[in-house]
Simulated scan of single mutants.
Amino acid sequence: MREGVRHIVWDWNGTLLDDNHANLAAANHVCEMFGAPPRELEEWRRIFRRPLLPFYEELLGRSFADGEWERLDTAYNSYYRRLLPSCRLADGALETLGAWRAAGGTQSLLSMAAHDHLVPVITEHGLVPHFTRVDGRRHDTGADSKAEHLVNHLAAQDIDPATVVLIGDIDDDAHAARAAGARAILVATGLMSRERLEATGHPVADSLTEAVRMLHG
């Protein structure tokens, strides 16, 4: 697993940022808007997935009429951003980023959050100096997956995917890494249960510190 890895691509939401409560509250807000019952966190961690549109159609029990998906997306993001000031960095995030840099590794950040939203948040947390590049979602894709974004993220830095591990919190991170020719370690602290992460066949850690320790060990 560790041989040849020189670069980490970090996920943001649910990985470096502890924002489960904000994501769940925003999801329950849109469930209420569309007449669906609220969900508890552990239930959400068992059912959440990408692509988001068919997931929400299944969650709400119906297809979206024209304009409804855009309405849901706007409402979700607005509610989430109201709660963003209550979100903190994950336990050990700063120490882990610093330790990897000190050990001679490089790292970047790739998120499915909108790029224009992401960059000010990363800047506010003082994290920009840790990363060789920060990319949010700059465009939508039909697959609604991180895979195409990861390929572009690595190509923009001229990084060989074989030297990369992506550390994220959902199975789409694992799928993206595999599609790009990279490796993945998943952390069981975000929006997907450990059992579902383990089903990807990729290593699963209980903390950021443990995830990077897997690379050193």
Rank of each mutant, 00 (worst) to 15 (best):
A22W: 06
L154R: 12
F131M: 12
T200K: 09
A114C: 06
T15P: 05
D140C: 07
L60F: 15
I167Q: 06
V187A: 05
V9F: 07
L24C: 04
P203W: 06
A103C: 03
R46S: 13
F48P: 00
H130A: 14
A103L: 15
V134C: 09
V121T: 11
E70N: 02
E58T: 08
T15Y: 00
P129A: 11
V5S: 05
R2K: 12
R39D: 00
D18G: 03
M1S: 12
A176T: 08
L166N: 08
V165Q: 10
A93D: 03
R2Y: 03
L197Y: 00
D11S: 02
G98Y: 03
H216A: 15
A179L: 06
N23H: 14
D140N: 14
L150P: 08
H117S: 11
A90P: 01
A93E: 02
A155R: 15
R194Y: 01
V164F: 11
G105L: 05
I170G: 02
G14D: 02
L84W: 05
N28F: 06
A188S: 15
A26K: 05
L215G: 10
A25S: 11
S108H: 07
R45S: 01
D19L: 05
R6E: 14
P54W: 08
A65E: 15
Y56Q: 09
G190E: 05
S86N: 10
L154M: 09
T141G: 13
L89K: 09
